[in-house]
Amino acid sequence: MKEKLTEELVAMRAAKELVPGDYCNLGIGIPLNCAAYAAEGVLLESENGVLGYGPVHDRESLDENIERVDWDIADAGMRYLEYVPGMSFFDMLTSFAMIRSGRLISILGGLQVSEKGDAAIHSTSKDDIASKIGGSMDLSWGAKRLIVTMTHCSKDGSPKIVRELTMPVTTRGRVNLIVTDMAVIEVTSSGLVLKEFAPGWTPEEIQEQTEATLTIAPDVREMEF
């Protein structure tokens, strides 16, 4: 069995999509790891109302740092944030106006992505008792660019890049780029285009693990980090 990329490497590759001056919201899971690799000058946003956040306090040593931590400054996933120059705080209405306005790049985790750019992000099952939607629908609908990072296949080996979603839909036709532990795939009006492959993998092998049909870009190349 060939090696797939680690979550860190997937995050590193996704973070290369960000350039100084970009505003970006990172979803739970692999996307949060992008923070460490984003270029200087990228301002990160979190839905509860902060822009321009940087390092987070280490969870393991919070109790040794009670005096250093400001317990009123956290991101949406309740990671406590360090003060950094240039950060701003605002309410949820301001936050979602920002999220809806096409100003932010959203990097979100994915459960399934279809060849039309539909995405299942918030839930694996229609039988959920209550919503896990959170900000996922707003973040995917309103993004300047929607980048989905995920493993290429689920734990049981079934492909996550599919012709039609079988999981609850978070958004229709909004995904621009998929970064997985095997490949970088662009969603275009004429379908999915394989742009990059992970070291050691061939485009043909990636197609085998993808339900949707991939067009291989003429300049397809090995992923760089």
Binding site: F96, I129, S131, I133, G135
Partner: peptide
């Protein structure tokens, strides 16, 4: 009864 919304819908409906 549970009514599901998104965070954006929650805040804009209150607004």
């Amino acid at each position: 009864e549970i009514e599901n919304v998104s965070h954006g819908l929650f805040i804009e409906r209150l607004h």
